[in-house]
Amino acid sequence: MTFQSIDSWWWPFLFILVGGWLATDTWRFLGVYFGGRISDESDALVLVRCVATALVASVIGNLVVFPSGELANTSLILRLVAMASGFAAFLGLGRHVVLGIAVAIGVLEVGIFLGF
């Protein structure tokens, strides 16, 4: 039952619906359901928020350490330095998201140009 296993036009779409849509919107719909029932100040919500944040953070870590596409052809050190520079610029220069992204991309491009 892989994406490629059934040779018909509808199978990939069913795969995306069950493996993608159902697997994400179930959480969103549960969120609407619980949204009316959990107090925004409750400690349980802090725990849920912490777990959610750590989950997204681990996605970020994996995107940098095990990248896909063209980024996979750059060195790990370069990617880490680019991310750290962007983050440092964000924290040090007034928390501007765009500035942080520009610095990270700039460092990456210089690194690629210099052959890192």
Binding site: L22, R28, L30, G31, G35, G36, V51, A52
Partner: peptide, 21 residues
């Protein structure tokens, strides 16, 4: 695949919980 996607999307629930009120 559905399991992996569901795991990566758990965070959507607390995000929605925070947004709805």
């Amino acid at each position: 695949a559905a399991f992996a996607v569901a795991l990566s999307s758990v965070r959507l629930m607390p995000m929605v919980v925070a947004l709805v009120p």
